[in-house]
Amino acid sequence: MSLGKMIKSSDVKGDTPYDIILRAWLDHKTADLPAQLAGMLIRWQKVDVLIRQGEIVSAADADGTIKQVRKRFNFSGLVEWIRQEYRVSARTAYEDIRNAKRFFLSCEGREDVEYSRGVMIEWGENMMHSAFEAGDFDAASKFFKELNKIKGLHEQRVDVPDYSEFVPPTFTIVADPTELGFEKIDNPDEVVARILNEKRAGFIDSEAEDAEVMPDGE
């Protein structure tokens, strides 16, 4: 399945909860999901939002002023949030995180590293705008340069063929050799038998020539 292409529900095989939810999502039929599966999808959507947006916490400035800031969830913190919010086990919370990343990766056609890059870009842009609005243009400029590196805007792009448009050659199996220009053989069974006899005779002659002649009496 090629990256960057939206997959179809017919591409999704299997009957695991993940497969069923993904097919329903692609067919725009999530409203028809059973309550348990619908609840799983809701948790995955929330996890994806939390990974991208982080959480609001209180932090003190250098002068001691308390303000609300946004920070990324660490893995254990996200697991604990899911456990408390949805009253599920730690194991279920871990599975929710794994499935959320896999689910939205599948729908958007990106590799895991691209998922992480997208999150980093969102965070970097937020911090760049915050620094700019605060008048810290030096910090905003550094964020801007770093974002350009993450996005690869300075990299030289190499044109490659669009493999999605590649049409593989079609091969046809031909049972009659005469269609390929070979001479027609009316008695193929006799020809095969003759060739085998010749090979067998040649093999016996060769073995006879290579055989060691033993002197009499030995």
Rank of each mutant, 00 (worst) to 15 (best):
D48Y: 07
R23A: 02
R87A: 12
V79M: 05
F203C: 06
I56N: 13
E114K: 04
R102H: 03
I66F: 08
G4K: 00
D19W: 02
S2R: 15
V88A: 07
N126D: 11
L78T: 00
F104Q: 06
K13V: 05
L37K: 00
D176K: 02
V79F: 03
H129K: 15
R72D: 09
L147T: 08
K8I: 08
R43M: 05
I56T: 15
E179I: 08
E146R: 13
A60V: 07
V174S: 09
Q84S: 13
I20G: 04
I7Y: 05
V158G: 01
R52P: 02
V119R: 10
E125T: 07
I51E: 01
G77Q: 01
L41M: 06
R23H: 00
P161K: 05
D27F: 05
E155F: 09
R72H: 09
N197C: 08
Y18S: 05
D27E: 12
F137N: 11
W81F: 11
F144V: 04
F104T: 03
T172S: 10
L180T: 03
K199D: 09
V49S: 14
A59M: 07
S76D: 10
T172E: 15
P188F: 02
K101C: 10
I195F: 08
A139V: 12
A62K: 10
D61F: 06
G14A: 02
G181F: 00
Q84R: 12
R91E: 13
T92N: 02
Q36L: 12
N187E: 09
L3S: 06
S58Q: 13
E125H: 05
R117D: 12
I82K: 05
K184A: 14
S106N: 15
G109E: 04
R87F: 09
E125C: 02
V57N: 07
T172V: 14
I42D: 15
A140S: 04
W25L: 09
E111K: 12
K101W: 04
E218R: 12
L26P: 02
H154S: 14
I97C: 00
V113P: 04
S9F: 03
I20S: 04
S106L: 12
I20Y: 04
H154W: 12
R102E: 06
K101P: 01
S141K: 13
A38L: 02
